[in-house]
Design a protein around this nucleic acid. Structure first.
Lengths: 155, 155
DNA sequence: ATCAAAGTTGACTAAATTACTCGGGTATGG
DNA sequence: CCATACCCGAGTAATTTAGTCAACTTTGAT
């Protein structure tokens, strides 16, 4: 599980797709101008997102991309994983005597840790991210205080 | 909060320090050979770890590094943060009209997400990793969190 | 005092990743 | 047919990661 700006770009773009869904496919040009990400870079990212079955593409005029599943069924973890090369956790290949030593132990510990973070991000969907934002916006607009439990995702 | 191999190196080295503590300072040469990380790279990492007050250094023969605090009081998050440049979350500087648009909002959402992961890793100490107790602990915390979330956000 | 062990620092470099560009393709609605 | 928009691969600049090298400082031990 790798967390860098690359994953953020992907999540941002997917959020954009989710936010502007409902009127057919969305072109990468729109996403590009709205989110200020270069078109060609988006193409690379969406190539991976498509191969990961997270989006569907429609070619030709009027085409674009749309989420393959509802935003409530796409997790942040999936998006981040789709665009990242898997982090290599097997550095111990070279060193022969790495059976039960400290080396493999810490590697294993790290992968377990990494796995826990994956589990964590698997529990957060695009919808939850958007929803939280909606709640906050409405709360500000109506000057209304929601129960704390309503805004549980990111606080 | 950035997660890459660099953070893993730092965590691994700190775990090594924790595991072999008790007999005075530990030289980076030992850590280097045990964990198969280049000495000079370790020096760079420990320079940052020292500035972050996570380790103490002892110069001269018989010197080396030791944890500044007990391993039960050093979190993974601290270690990772110490060696990572802060992830730049303010890409929207250039674009003027970025007050309440999608752009800044998704940036904000990402930083909050990143913050959540920080909170998550803050709850895991070196000691827990060594005792391998962190899996259960985290699992408990997550179950708790997800239960509440599921009840409130999903029906 | 001298020596050797070790941290300290800075400059430098190679490799990898990230972010982006370019130049072509291909499918398709109008 | 043609403009639109995805598709694809090569290339490239910027940044980060990982490591090297060389000089220096501190300090325990002889």
């Amino acid at each position: 599980m790798k967390l860098s700006t690359k994953g953020r770009y992907a999540v941002t773009a997917m959020l954009d797709l989710a936010l502007h869904s409902g009127n057919g496919p969305i072109t990468l040009a729109e996403v590009s101008s709205r989110q200020d990400i270069s078109l060609s870079y988006l193409e690379q990212l969406f190539s991976k997102l498509r191969k990961a079955s997270l989006v569907d593409s429609v070619r030709g005029p009027g085409g674009g991309y749309e989420l393959k599943r509802p935003s409530s069924q796409i997790s942040i973890a999936e998006v981040v994983l789709a665009v990242n090369e898997p982090i290599s956790a097997t550095k111990c290949n070279g060193k022969g005597g790495c059976q039960d030593g400290d080396l493999c132990l810490s590697h294993q510990l790290w992968t377990e840790l990494s796995d826990q973070i994956y589990q964590f991000l698997s529990g957060i969907t695009l919808e939850q991210v958007i929803q939280r934002r909606f709640v906050q916006k409405v709360a500000e607009r109506q000057n209304h205080r929601f129960r704390e439990e309503d805004v549980i995702l990111f606080s």
